Amino acid sequence: MCQASSSFASQAFVLFGTFNTSLWDDQGGLSQGEVAVLDVGTGAWARVLPAGDPGSDGKPTYPVPRQGAAAISWKSALVGDTTINAADTIVFGGRDASGNYLSDVWLLRAYNATLTSSKQTWSGFGSGTLAGGPTATGEGVTIQYLTKCAASIGTPSSSKTTSAPSGSSTSGSSGSPGSSDQAPPSSASPAYDTSIVHKSTAAISVALFLPAVALHRLASPSVAHDMMPERHMILRFIGDLLGFAAYALVPVS
C-alpha cells in the first residue's frame, strides 16, 4: 500500500509464520520480526529485518512468531499522527509455536522512502535515535537485508537417502542403512493394485446385467392383466439367474 515508489505496487509483505527450529535455520530472522517482500511481477524475494520498537528502555522488541494472525493494511497512517507520510499495517493475535492464542496488537509502519542494501538511510532518519510507538515518525529507522535463505539442518545421518518433494516429510524404519527392514525400492507393486480376476469381474457383471434386463422386458406381458405364458416364464427365470450372477460378481474393494 506504500506509494513512495511505483515499484511498490507489485510488492507484497509476507509476515510471521512458524517453523521447526530443529530442522531449519532462518538466521534468526523470524525472531527479529522478519518481513519477506515478494515482487509478484518478477517472482523475486527479499528478506528484510525491520527496525523494532525501542519501548521505554531503548531496546528494540519484536512480535513473537505466530500463525493465523489477522491483518489490515492501508496507504496512510492509521493510528497516532495520521498526517505522517507512511503506510500502516495492523496485525492482531494469532497462535504461537506452542499453540497458545495471542491477544497482542502490532503496527508495521512503512515510511515513504526507498531503501536498498547499499542505501539504508533516508531523509527522515534524523539524528539516528530510534523512536517507537504509534506516533513514531521514522527517526532512526533503518532495515537490514538478509543475504541467505533459510537452510535445512535436519538432514538424515544415513548415507542412503531418497529425495522427497519440497514441503513434505517422509518417515522410514529405524533400521540401519542396508538392513532388511528398509523401505522397498520404487519398482515394487503400486499401492491398491488388484489381481486380473478382481479387475475382470466388474466387466463381466455389467455384461450379464444388460441381457438380464432385456430378458425381463421380453418376459413381461403386453397387457397388465394377461396371463404369463410358459415361454415368458422361462425368459423370466433365465433373466433372474443372470441378474443374480451379475450382482454376485460385483467387485468389492
Rank of each mutant, 00 (worst) to 15 (best):
175 G>M: 00
57 D>H: 00
225 H>I: 15
25 D>R: 13
226 D>E: 14
227 M>W: 09
102 L>R: 00
157 S>M: 04
21 T>L: 14
46 A>N: 12
32 Q>W: 07
3 Q>I: 11
82 T>H: 11
110 A>V: 12
192 Y>N: 15
38 L>E: 06
48 V>N: 03
81 D>E: 10
31 S>E: 12
88 D>Y: 00
114 T>M: 05
131 A>D: 10
51 A>S: 15
111 Y>S: 13
239 G>A: 07
223 V>M: 04
202 A>K: 13
18 T>P: 05
192 Y>H: 14
117 S>I: 13
248 A>D: 08
144 Q>G: 13
63 P>N: 00
134 P>E: 10
244 F>Q: 01
144 Q>K: 14
166 S>Q: 00
97 A>M: 06
173 S>W: 11
191 A>Y: 07
249 L>Y: 01
38 L>M: 10
182 Q>I: 04
65 P>W: 09
109 R>I: 04
173 S>A: 14
107 L>E: 06
105 V>S: 06
82 T>F: 11
124 G>C: 10
37 V>N: 09
153 I>R: 11
110 A>D: 12
145 Y>T: 14
179 S>K: 01
212 A>W: 02
107 L>P: 02
15 L>R: 05
131 A>P: 04
82 T>W: 11
183 A>H: 06
57 D>K: 03
148 K>E: 09
247 Y>C: 13
246 A>L: 06
9 A>V: 05
163 S>G: 01
59 K>Y: 12
114 T>G: 08
88 D>V: 08
62 Y>H: 02
8 F>D: 14
160 K>T: 12
119 K>Y: 01
111 Y>M: 14
148 K>D: 07
166 S>K: 05
204 I>W: 02
87 A>S: 12
21 T>K: 15
145 Y>V: 15
64 V>L: 06
6 S>P: 13
55 G>R: 01
126 G>Q: 08
79 V>Y: 07
54 P>C: 13
32 Q>E: 06
211 P>G: 09
123 S>R: 05
86 A>C: 04
6 S>M: 14
218 L>W: 01
223 V>C: 08
169 S>P: 03
242 L>Q: 05
19 F>P: 03
114 T>Y: 00
244 F>K: 00
76 S>L: 09
106 W>Q: 05
247 Y>S: 13
23 L>K: 14
228 M>V: 11
125 F>V: 04
247 Y>T: 15
48 V>H: 04
95 R>S: 09
44 A>C: 04
124 G>D: 12
193 D>G: 11
